[in-house]
Amino acid sequence: MRSRVVCGVAAAVTLFATACGGGDDAKSSSGATLGGGTAASGAAPAGTSGFPVKVTDCAGAETTFTQAPRKIVTSNASSLEMLFWLGAGDRVVGTGFPPGKGTMPEQFAARAERVEVLGDMVIPKERLLGSGADLYIDTFADMGGMGAMGSGPSEKEFSAAGIKHIYLKSTACAAKRPGPQQDLAEVEADIKGLGAVTGTSAKADELVAGMEQKLGAVRTALAGVPQDRRPTYFFFDFDAGTKQPIAVCGKQVANAVITLAGARNVFADCDGDYKPVAWEDVVARNPDWIQLGVRDKGSAEANAKAYDEAERFLRGFDATKGLNAVKGGRFVRIGSERTTIAGVRNADTVQQIASTIHPDLVKPAQAAQ
C-alpha cells in the first residue's frame, strides 16, 4: 500500500490551504476576497475605465482599486490560470506552487513555463515582499496549518510593500461557509471579480457565459432525474495516498462539480472542505461510482498509467474490492485539478462526469473535448 503523501506539493495545496483571511488592516489596502467587485471594462493595465473597483474579503471588509494592477504574483496555478483565461497573464511576474507539466491548458502552457517561480510551494515571505508586485492573489489564504512553511507576510507588511492582497472566495472561504457548495456561483464570482480588478470584465463575462451554457445543457438533460435516484459518488484522491483516504466534503469545489454532474457525493455531509476518513467509512457508503482522482502527470500515457494503478489498487484492496463501483467497473477517469481547484474548466469537468455516469442523457458530443 502506498504511503500517504500529505505534505507533498499538490497534497499540501488541496488539503491544508483553506482558511479565510481578513482583518482590520484589510479594510484599506489588503486582505480582500474576490466576488464582490464592481464591473469594469477594458483590458489596459494602466487604464482607469470602470474604476474604482471594490472587492470584499470573507468578513466583508473592502479593498479598493483605482486602476488595474501592473505586476501580479499568484500563490499557485489556480489564480495563474484564471489570469491567462482573462488575458491578463502577461502581467504575472511570479508564482508559488507552479503548475506541473501538463496541468495548464495547452494554449497557455508555454507562457506559464516562462513565469518566474518564486517558491516551489508557499512563496518565502521576503521574496514575496521584494517581488515588486502591486497585487498578490492568494488562492487559499492562510497557510498556517502547514507550519513554518505557511508563515506569510502580515497585512501591514503587504501594505508597506505596496502590495494589495486578495483571495479567491470559492477556495479561501470554503471551509467557513455556512453550507455546501452545490453550484459554481462562487467560482464564477471569482472570475468576474478578478476580471473587474484587472480591467478585463468583458472577457470575464464571456468566460462565465460559456460556463453557464455548458452547465445549462447538463442541467436540462438531467432535469428528469430525481435527486434520490442519482448515483452516489466517491472522489478517490489517489495521489494523497492509500493508507487513509481523504474525502472531499460538501464545502469543497468538487462537491459542486459532482452535484451539477448529476451525482451525490458520499461525503457531502462532512464539515469543511477536506477530511481524512477511514476505509470503513467508504465501505459503509458503498459508492456507485468512483472518480480516480489522479493529478496530471504531463502526458496522456503517464496519466493512463496512473489511472490504471489507482484502479488496480481498488480492485485488489480487500476493503474496496467488494464495493458496488469496483465490482461494476464504474470508474471515472478525470483529472484531480480540474475537479478540486476552482477555475473555468470546472464546467468542462461537470460535462465529462455527467456524460460518463449518465450516458443515455448526456451524450459524449456534449462533453468537453
Rank of each mutant, 00 (worst) to 15 (best):
Q291F: 06
K251T: 09
G241I: 05
Q213M: 07
V115Y: 08
G145L: 11
T339P: 04
G179R: 06
K169Y: 04
R114V: 07
A172F: 02
A217Y: 01
L118A: 10
A263Y: 01
S131G: 10
A202H: 08
G35V: 00
A368D: 14
L184G: 00
R285Q: 03
K71Y: 00
V115L: 11
G31E: 06
T95F: 03
T340V: 15
A175Y: 11
E206Y: 03
A223E: 13
V117Q: 08
V197W: 03
S49H: 04
Q107N: 13
V326I: 12
D205M: 03
K297Y: 02
V266L: 05
D239G: 06
N265D: 09
P105A: 13
G328I: 06
K321W: 01
F267S: 10
R295W: 14
A278G: 12
T139W: 13
A32C: 12
E212K: 11
D288I: 03
D269N: 15
R4W: 12
A61C: 13
H358I: 04
L135Y: 00
T38D: 15
A367S: 13
R111D: 14
N346R: 07
Q291S: 13
S131H: 05
T320S: 10
I258L: 02
P105R: 06
A10I: 10
T356A: 07
G60D: 10
I353L: 05
S170E: 07
A302H: 01
N303F: 03
N286Y: 05
V93H: 05
N265A: 06
D288V: 02
V122C: 14
A223T: 10
V92R: 09
T48S: 07
V197P: 11
L184I: 01
P45G: 12
G152W: 09
V257R: 01
A209I: 00
D348K: 05
C58E: 11
K321V: 04
L207C: 09
G100F: 08
Q182Y: 11
P276M: 05
F51E: 07
P105G: 11
K214L: 00
W85M: 10
C249K: 04
R4C: 15
V282L: 00
Q366E: 14
R312H: 12
G328E: 10
D281M: 04
R91S: 10
V93P: 00
